[in-house]
């Protein structure tokens, strides 16, 4: 069970309180109507699924209920950073690989 730092609560809490919510930084296009089929596919279905650092969303379901973002290494499952929704991708320096 992972231990996750909620950037809103500023607390390390067990995974049971959280719900994974898919890849982060995939913004819903402002002009959905104008989206091509290809762009829609990329927005809704295509995922980077990296072996290494993934930027992903979590929701502190049984806590503050906020969605937030995390950078996690999918090989070790180690969290490099968690940060609030809307913040840009953090610079992970050497850790980001």
């Amino acid at each position: 069970m992972l231990l996750i730092h909620c950037p809103y609560c500023q607390e390390d809490r067990p995974e049971l309180e959280f719900r994974h919510a898919g890849e982060a930084h995939i913004a819903r296009p402002a002009d959905m109507a104008a989206l091509s089929d290809e762009d829609f596919e990329r927005f809704f279905f295509i995922r980077s699924n990296p072996k290494g650092v993934v930027f992903e969303r979590w929701r502190h379901m049984h806590g503050c209920a906020r969605f937030f973002n995390a950078a996690r290494d999918t090989v070790s499952d180690r969290f490099l950073k968690t940060y609030k929704a809307g913040e840009p991708k953090p610079d992970l320096g050497g850790e980001g690989r």
Binding site: A21, R28, R59, A65, R66, F67, A85
Partner: peptide, 13 residues
Amino acid sequence: LNHMEDYLQTEFP
């Protein structure tokens, strides 16, 4: 509710 919160918090904040 989760679906609504997701859009409210992250797409239409």
